[in-house]
Write a protein that binds this DNA or RNA. Structure first.
Lengths: 163, 163
DNA sequence: CCAAAGATGAAAATGATTGTCATTTTTATT
DNA sequence: AATAAAAATGACAATCATTTTCATCTTTGG
């Protein structure tokens, strides 16, 4: 199986941190901190990003969620704004395999993913030793590391995973 | 600067391992090990992959190199075959930022990349501690890890890097 | 040499993402 | 509250990497 989409949901214990509730004013100050104007569309997009249980969402996912509230919203608006959130560090971009880019609000703790290439299951993990090594590698090569991509792929050894 | 292409060349000391020369019969047995028929186009693509100094090449790069020898080769042939090489583990796919997929022959030693997001410079590195942790993470989460993506992004602190 | 099985090239299709631009909204300032 | 400048929006076209399709050609085992 080629991974082209993520699983529909996650069980709670596979998430590093449960979904956080963000108030309207939280969201507004997010926008202000980005020096962007506060619009209903943007608030709605941020709300969509913060809506569980699926926390890594594509522009299409967001578009669908927001369309319910704003039936006229354009695709470009969603794309444009998602890109800006990542530019401003509000979200992180997940680019796994050939699937469309996924966005995730950075209110969640820093973590990485293990992807099962058979069933598409995603499990999150954290590893301090790796984070320390990343800092060391940066120092050794005289780079200021700003961010990193780190994804593991393999097979989950679950009995319920498709063979 | 948004990274959309890699730098034209590498200085020797930034490469984990210099380019290896592969003989025609090496290449042919590669193809046989993939259970694929031996065609001039495929040999030419493998040669292109093995031609330095740029070791991470896009389908377009390969297409251009091979076109010199086979002016009629189709883009689809290149894409199709590159994808197969990666499926068979002959190459690894590099997907950095929004740039087109890059392929790299796996005759080179396993390594990762640090990408300067200002000037596009790429430096390769190896880190045993991280490799060990990857194994550990897989074990801890009951996954058989088959491969991983790991790329660092930041700024190279070189005086010659564009500010 | 011959007949599958497989590979190729040309061109169209796909699908995510981006660009354009006329219109509308936000917001700081009267 | 009215207003003007700056910014955002939506519709839609354009890009661009990658895939598909399919009719034609090659490879390869017998």
């Amino acid at each position: 199986m080629e991974i082209t989409e993520l699983p529909k949901g996650y069980t709670k214990d596979e998430l590093i941190q449960p979904q956080t509730k963000l108030s309207e004013s939280n969201l507004k100050s997010m926008l202000r901190s980005m020096n962007l104007k506060v619009t209903n569309q943007r608030l709605s997009i941020l709300k969509a990003l913060n809506k569980g249980p699926k926390t890594h969402v594509t522009a299409k996912d967001v578009f669908e969620r927001v369309s319910a509230e704003y039936p006229n919203i354009g695709f470009a608006t969603v794309y444009r704004f998602l890109k800006e959130t990542s530019r401003f560090g509000i979200t992180s971009e997940l680019r796994i395999g050939y699937a469309p880019t996924r966005y995730e609000l950075k209110v969640r703790e820093h973590h990485h993913h293990i992807v099962c290439t058979k069933c598409g299951k995603i499990v999150e993990f954290q590893n301090e030793i790796i984070e320390d090594q990343i800092k060391k590698v940066g120092k050794d090569h005289n780079f200021s590391i700003e961010h990193h991509i780190f994804e593991l792929y393999g097979f989950c050894n679950n009995p319920n995973c498709c063979k």
